[in-house]
């Protein structure tokens, strides 16, 4: 059990800057994110796209913004728990017990939800029959490619993941690549390579088809695909792989007894607390009259939520407002030297 002043759910820009604000006022926090890297949507959706509306930064990319935010909180040495998802929240004696899907546990008076539009999850096949084999022979990511050796593998998708794995696995497996249209959105070189492998009959390429059904008797045996005109075909398969990108899902957050408005969490605008004491929501996931889904709004919300955490984390102390320009306490926390 890790005891801390606050757990931040989500390591996007809003969560990162909120951590900074907690650090500035002398609180500790632990940051959990479902992705394998820090940065949230900035790093997952648009690492290379320029952003033009960060105050005093005329232009930066999602990746640059993330790197700067990480740099800004480095001195606090907060722990990141990546590839992990907050699963359960329970209230015990006025403290929140936070459990993650990897089995970590935190005890904290404050939980700050900075979850964007939810956690990123792979988009799955729409067919019900695929659920039975989910994680066994129907897969959405690859951990160990050796399991596919000498097997029949049917890959669905038209992006880089689908193309790259089709090329790689075709060296040792019998590959069918299925995509809903003739154009691919992957890198041109990979598209070219797949077309070559298709011409030399190394890869069985099927375009304008989508999944209809998966069949098997205990273990997976085949996958049925359909064209839009209704024609269907059956392909023998030991494994089926789907690469349809990531979708954002609210996930377990919906189960925590918070008021929800569609996929967002209503908060007050004084400290961004939700209907539950000690649970705050900031950034894209929160809503209030006039809410703007901008990174700069998330920064403001995080600054106020951090102050809101103070009274629960230090009930016997009075919060004192200080500027970073003048406070020696803050400079100590930031690890900067006073030069006067």
């Amino acid at each position: 059990m890790i005891k801390t002043d606050a757990v931040i759910v989500g390591a996007g820009p809003t969560g990162l800057f909120c951590a900074h604000q907690l650090g500035i006022i002398g609180l500790k926090c632990e940051i959990v994110d479902n992705l394998d890297k820090i940065g949230g949507q900035c790093i997952e959706l648009y690492p290379d796209k320029p952003i033009y509306d960060i105050p005093a930064v005329p232009e930066c990319t999602g990746e640059e913004l993330t790197n700067n935010l990480i740099e800004q909180i480095k001195s606090f040495k907060f722990n990141f728990h990546l590839n992990d998802r907050v699963q359960e929240l329970k209230n015990e004696n006025d403290k929140w017990i936070v459990k993650t899907s990897n089995g970590k546990e935190f005890e904290t008076p404050n939980v700050i939800i900075a979850g964007g539009v939810g956690s990123f999850e792979p988009r799955k096949f729409p067919t019900k029959s695929a659920e039975k084999y989910d994680g066994k022979s129907v897969l959405y990511s690859i951990r160990d490619k050796s399991i596919f050796k000498d097997k029949s593998v049917v890959i669905f998708g038209g992006g880089d993941s689908a193309l790259d794995w089709a090329i790689e696995l075709s060296k040792t497996s019998k590959i069918t690549l299925v995509h809903r249209r003739d154009e691919f959105r992957g890198a041109p070189a990979s598209v070219q390579k797949v077309k070559e492998l298709s011409e030399s009959k190394v890869i069985n390429l099927m375009t304008r088809y989508s999944i209809k059904d998966v069949k098997g008797n205990g273990s997976l045996e085949s996958v049925e695909v359909k064209s839009e005109t209704g024609e269907s075909k059956v392909i023998n398969a030991d494994y089926v792989l789907g690469f349809f990108g990531l979708i954002m899902q609210l996930g377990p957050i919906a189960e925590w007894g918070l008021n929800l408005d569609k996929k967002t969490i209503p908060v007050n605008t004084e400290n961004f607390e939700t209907n539950k004491k000690g649970i705050f929501a900031i950034g894209d996931i929160c809503t209030y009259p006039g809410k703007l889904k901008l990174i700069l709004s998330g920064f403001h919300e995080g600054a106020l939520a951090a102050r809101g955490c103070f009274k629960y984390a230090r009930p016997n102390e009075k919060y004192r407002f200080e500027f970073t320009t003048s406070s020696s306490t803050i400079k100590d926390r930031l690890g900067v030297k006073e030069n006067d």
């Binding site: 729409p126 038209g158 992006g159 959105r185 839009e228 990108g245």
Partner: peptide
């Protein structure tokens, strides 16, 4: 738009 539609639920032409 078509690239994004590849990732939609049950896209058609």
């Amino acid at each position: 738009e078509d690239d994004m539609l590849d990732q939609a639920y049950e896209p058609k032409s």
